[in-house]
Design a protein around this nucleic acid. Structure first.
Lengths: 333, 333
DNA sequence: CTGTTAGCGCGTTCAC
DNA sequence: GTGAACGCGCTAACAG
């Protein structure tokens, strides 16, 4: 029983199928491509039989060479450990599936060098399109590596001079309005908790939004890879307690909220009176931990789905990229 | 400026490069494959020039058709939203990269039907190998769809009658020893917090391990997709308080710990005296939230790396799959 | 050191 | 309804 699969030494080709079914290779091809109407049902049955008997599986490389299409779309994200990236991919996939494409996920791991490699890889293989959550800020770098001319949609982070459609969050506006909201509640001192701001356009925008609304802003930058938890914790405590103003700790990314805020809550520093916290947050984890927190929710799934819709449209219509910017708003709730 | 990439109407082929460089197509092929030693540096330079001028990019489909290899390995995981799956992928990638392969990530989204589709997709395309975190329990189902004969390594969940190498955690043992550990501390009542146990072999093993050590076990099954947070919360409270025994809440998956334990801590139900909690936990998030928790840490990265090593070994040696079972132990700490 | 040639497996005109 | 034959872009002998 087990292992019957392995019986065929060489993988069968269309020729083998044709021979066994006693038809021509062209007929087999027609069968495979669903042109059943131009075929007697007898031959169709014979072919079907032969395919099963031989365990025949079409060679996609050969097909791609002819059709110049793979029905696969590369999705290159910044970090698959981020819920944002994975949820984005799920959104992408849902639309892609519905249109008979398959999403293939690649992870740049927040490494610009790796991003280059992956873009080259995508360039070198027959992917029909690319959805990219970029690390780079400049479209030029990407254009230099993507010599092949396939449709591209950029998500989440904005690119300078992008010739492609972009799908982004209203980072600046929502950061600003959120800050205003807390200002109105008396939180005049804002501590921004973030990875290196200059590393991503989203962070820059969020920071700019906060600064536009707040009067007193401190920044605490935490290294993505390595940080001293205790040290960051102490700095936060200091920033909260050394002023008489009411303090809002504003995490630019959910991860930092999850890492540092719970202990501050347990220890009573975040009491929702003298100090409170908010964050850009993609999952419901933070809310479950402390339901009283008001957080900014993005919609990565919708962003992915939107990006995929744009891409699919270009794929089927062969239209040139529109340089639209699609904004999926985030909301405080 | 922008768009210089788009200037070439049809993508150039090797023939074009050969013509422009005034050499034969074979020489270009040699150049591309790094056989520079068998070539005058003059011609090499000419070819290099031509390639750049023409923006030539080799057609991987054509190459795959000849070499029957893509240097790509498909990694099919159960759920990219789980840190376990993504970290596994990172471990896989690290080894793959080092051996000049690229990992390509696919997400079954915990959907068996989708798993089938993806396995067929992998089967239909030229992936050199497959690393699978399976949903299915039986190897036969997979064998039926994977007609092509490429090396496969199974990770995390065990398969019945697997003809492939498996890389797994010592779920039973560590669940048992952990339970014993807490029993010794007086926690004689164990509440198991889990998704449907029968859905995954890992969960079954963990549950069996707990039962083997505990005297009084209650099970609280939570639906992956939809659950009433308040209701689960209340059930937990009831289970903890309705007995005089000391209670250990044992989450079979980090997510459930994150979802329900923090509020129990805040409300004082989990006081590390009358009641405490533990979990299989892959990230450090839970530890940061409550450092006093003792949790079971798996090592998904190492599991991925191990799986990839086995796969690469089979890839380069063309050895048949060994039916080994590789165990990466988890530890309580 | 370099060119010629024969396929790889399949889709697609054409004919019949 | 069905088949023969060409070509997709490339690699791998084999010549020279």
């Amino acid at each position: 029983m087990g292992g019957s699969v392995m019986e065929n030494r060489k993988t069968a080709t269309m020729k083998d199928v044709a021979a066994l079914a006693d038809v021509s290779i062209a007929t087999v091809s027609r069968f495979l491509n669903g042109n059943l109407d131009r075929m007697s049902s007898t031959t169709a049955a014979k072919i079907k039989d032969a395919i099963e008997k031989l365990n025949y599986v079409p060679n996609s490389a050969a097909r791609q060479m002819i059709t110049k299409a793979s029905k696969m779309v590369a999705v290159v994200v910044a970090n698959i450990d981020d819920y944002f990236s994975t949820e984005l991919f799920k959104g992408v996939s849902s639309i892609l599936e519905a249109n008979n494409y398959t999403g293939v996920l690649f992870d740049t791991d927040s490494n610009p060098e790796r991003e280059r490699q992956l873009i080259q890889l995508v360039n070198d293989h027959t992917y029909d399109g690319l959805i990219l959550q970029p690390l780079t800020e400049s479209a030029a770098t990407i254009e230099a590596d993507m010599k092949r001319d396939i449709p591209i949609v950029v998500v989440d982070r904005e690119l300078i001079h992008s010739p492609w459609t972009q799908v982004v969050t209203n980072n600046y506006e929502v950061a600003k309005s959120t800050t205003s909201h807390f200002m109105a509640a008396g939180y005049t001192h804002v501590v921004v908790l973030t990875s290196k701001i200059s590393m991503a356009s989203t962070r820059e925008e969020r920071y700019a939004g906060i600064k536009a609304a707040a009067s007193h802003v401190d920044v605490l930058e935490v290294s993505e890879e390595s940080y001293n938890h205790t040290q960051v914790h102490q700095k936060l405590v200091k920033l909260i307690t050394e002023t008489t103003e009411k303090t809002l700790v504003f995490a630019l990314k959910e991860r930092w909220l999850l890492e540092f805020i719970p202990s501050l809550i347990v220890q009573g520093y975040i009491d929702h009176d003298q100090a409170t916290a908010t964050a850009f947050s993609d999952t419901s984890t933070a809310r479950n931990i402390e339901p009283r927190l008001q957080l900014i929710s993005q919609d990565p799934y919708l962003m992915g789905a939107s990006a995929a819709e744009v891409l699919v449209d270009q794929l089927v219509s062969h239209r040139r990229p529109t340089q639209d910017k699609i904004i999926i708003p985030a909301t405080l709730r």
